Amino acid sequence: MALAIGRSFTFQPCSLFSNKGVDKTSPVGKYSWLGSDAAAARAGVTQRRRQISVAAQQRPTWLPGLDPPPYLDGTLAGDFGFDPLGLAEDPKSLRWYVQAELVHSRFAMLGVLGILVTDLLRVTGLSKIPVWYEAGAAKYEFANTGTLIIVQLLLMGFAETKRYMDFVSPGSQAKEGSFFGLEASLEGLEPGYPGGPLLNPLGLAKDIKNAHDWKLKEIKNGRLAMVAILGIFVQASVTHVGPIDNLVEHLSNPWHKTIIQTLASSTS
């Protein structure tokens, strides 16, 4: 029996309950009582959710077997689901935290490199430079301390202001006339990833949208550098020497000059 509704279509009540030819074990068969189109749509949603759930379980997390928070979906470089304090729940805050981590990572990498190189030059006697934590108190012949501080504030303040403005309005700092006609030399790729021949002379990751591997390598090295710089701060506070001095002392007697003995002797 068919009931005609207007002239557009016919409605067959028995079709709602007719499951002939439908595999009840399939996603469509499970929802066949909704009708073929609704069942297919419902089955598609269920399948997509299942795929997302499987992908979330398969992606690496900071603790194996841990379910990452739903707002950390793995799309960010270095996202391993670590957010015990829930700081990234707000999308706006998450954008800022990503940029803050990038900047801290880059400063940490530069800091570790600078400390190790200058400490190596000092220990080997190639240069008479002070240990890194006393370098700020040293007097330099080419400029006095006040001049150096003012120049650093001006240069870093200008760079950080430009970076913040680009974060607030992506691409605004690449517009013509925004940097004395030198915009093409900087050519920002996206917030946090400047480019151009000055800041990206090797031309790495020009297609920043598809540079996930490069971003992942940078953030991993940056996080390692932040842990390393913290370790350097702690060893300087405990031993009052540079990291190369500590390494040389350890290598001179590896079984008795370790971090355990060093901490024990410093507290006694």
Rank of each mutant, 00 (worst) to 15 (best):
L3I: 14
L3T: 13
I5S: 03
I5K: 03
G6R: 00
G6P: 03
S8I: 14
T10Y: 13
F17C: 13
F17S: 10
S18C: 12
S18D: 15
N19I: 13
D23A: 00
D23G: 00
K24A: 07
T25Y: 09
P27H: 01
V28I: 05
G29I: 05
W33K: 08
W33L: 08
A40S: 09
A40G: 04
A41Y: 06
A43M: 07
A43K: 01
G44N: 09
G44M: 08
V45D: 08
Q51M: 13
Q51H: 14
I52Q: 11
S53W: 12
S53G: 12
A56F: 12
Q58P: 04
R59P: 02
W62N: 05
L63K: 14
P64F: 03
G65D: 03
P68V: 07
A77T: 01
G78T: 01
G78S: 00
G78H: 01
F80C: 10
F80Q: 08
L85N: 10
L85E: 11
L85Y: 15
G86T: 06
D90A: 01
D90W: 02
L94S: 15
R95Y: 10
W96P: 08
L102D: 11
S105I: 09
S105H: 09
A108P: 01
M109R: 08
V112Q: 05
V112W: 08
I115D: 02
L116S: 06
L121Y: 07
V123H: 10
T124A: 06
G125R: 01
G125H: 04
K128W: 11
V131Q: 11
V131R: 10
W132T: 04
E134R: 08
G136N: 02
K139A: 13
F142K: 13
F142C: 10
T147M: 13
I150G: 11
V151T: 10
Q152V: 12
M156L: 14
K162E: 15
K162R: 12
R163V: 09
M165A: 13
F167N: 04
V168D: 07
P170S: 02
P170N: 07
Q173H: 07
Q173F: 14
K175I: 05
S178A: 11
S185D: 14
S185F: 15
G188M: 08
P197Q: 04
L198R: 02
L199M: 09
L199H: 05
L202D: 09
A205V: 00
I208C: 04
I208M: 11
K209Y: 10
K209Q: 14
A211G: 04
W214I: 11
E218K: 09
E218Q: 14
I219D: 04
G222N: 00
L224R: 03
A225N: 02
A228D: 05
I229K: 05
G231H: 05
V234Y: 04
T239W: 15
H240V: 01
G242F: 00
G242P: 06
G242T: 01
P243D: 05
N246M: 11
E249A: 13
W255Q: 12
T258D: 03
I260F: 15
Q261N: 14
Q261C: 08
L263P: 03
S266T: 04
T267M: 15
